[in-house]
């Protein structure tokens, strides 16, 4: 019973094994990035980057068809352009960064959908928007593994300035330029992680792999170090449970994964011991000191 539920799908089908590996890597690498997106109040930035990448991927697709390399290069270029341009626009015009990003990503999304449908079919378009977890070929898997490894390593290297810059930017700016550097490095990490995530979950859902595990982890600990370690556990387990649910329920995989992550967020919000609703309502007995 348990075997047929949890193990058999992976033994029987190659595409399930590939999905398992890809989703494991994604859960491991994307969740810590999401923790910092959330704590730096940049959740919208992650969203914007994912949408903005679409036209770049689409141009790669238009030029070279389904070539992972071409689409990735296109996506990276588009992602970096949007991050830099919106940063400059926010600094030198009256708009704040939030508004500029929103404007950019709406335009990019429309532009990307236009480009994809000009060259490909509706099925292609769905691939781009919602990913293709169950059809990961070698280059896609490799890309997911590489981007997530890279973001983990870079995040580990720049962890200290990133944390200090998030808590007390002025303090760090009086001591060194590392805060600004860390911010730019972090934006690059967001772009790279997103390029990997959209392989599995598409431009519309890819950001979920970063943000949702982070939000869930937020309700279990009040310490950033623990949070960065907890979030990937949520990410990996929700990804795999979602995959199995979609397999047995014969439903769309990407949405099933995101819904499972959403369920994890809901459970954490209800029962999390660091600010969850139920522990708050139960009013645990207090100590005398």
């Amino acid at each position: 019973m348990l075997y047929s539920l949890l193990i058999a799908p992976f033994v029987e089908f190659d595409f399930m094994r590939r999905a398992l590996i890809g989703l494991f890597a994604l859960g491991l690498g994307a969740a810590p990035v999401g923790v910092f997106l959330m704590l730096r109040r940049m959740s919208l930035t992650g969203d914007a980057v994912a949408h903005a990448i679409l036209p770049g991927v689409a141009v790669g697709f238009a030029l070279a068809g389904f070539s992972v390399v071409a689409m990735t290069v296109g996506g990276l270029i588009a992602g970096f352009i949007v991050v830099v341009v919106s940063g400059i626009a926010a600094r030198s015009t009256a708009l704040n960064e939030d508004a500029t990003l929103a404007a950019f990503y709406l335009v990019s999304l429309a532009c990307g959908v236009m480009l994809v449908s000009a060259r490909g079919s509706n099925v292609d378009l769905l691939h781009f928007l919602f990913g293709h977890v169950l059809a990961l070929d070698d280059p896609s898997l490799l890309l997911i593994a590489m981007t997530n490894s890279l973001s983990l390593i870079v995040l580990a290297l720049f962890y200290r300035p990133l944390v200090i810059d998030s808590v007390d930017p002025q303090f760090l700016s009086t001591l060194s330029r590392a805060g600004g550097v860390a911010h730019l490095v972090f934006l690059a990490v967001v772009v790279i992680t997103t390029v990997g995530a959209i392989q599995a979950l598409g431009t519309l859902l890819g950001v979920a792999a970063m943000i949702l595990p982070a939000v869930a982890a937020r309700f279990w600990t009040r310490d950033v170090n623990t949070m960065v370690l907890t979030a990937p556990l949520f990410g990996i387990s929700a990804n795999i449970i979602g995959l199995l649910v979609s397999y047995h329920g014969d439903s769309e995989t990407g949405p099933a994964i995101v819904l499972t992550q959403g369920f994890a967020v809901f459970l954490s919000l209800m029962f999390g011991r660091a600010g969850g609703l139920v522990p708050r309502l139960l009013r645990p007995r207090h100590r005398v000191a």
């Binding site: 808590v167 007390d168 760090l172 937020r218 310490d223």
Partner: peptide, 21 residues
């Protein structure tokens, strides 16, 4: 101080930031 007090950081880590130099 422009400190984001909602950031989940411990007192020990905040003080340890003084070791930056």
């Amino acid at each position: 101080a422009e400190i984001d007090r909602s950031f989940p950081l411990s007192v020990g880590d905040l003080v340890a930031a003084g070791a930056w130099r």
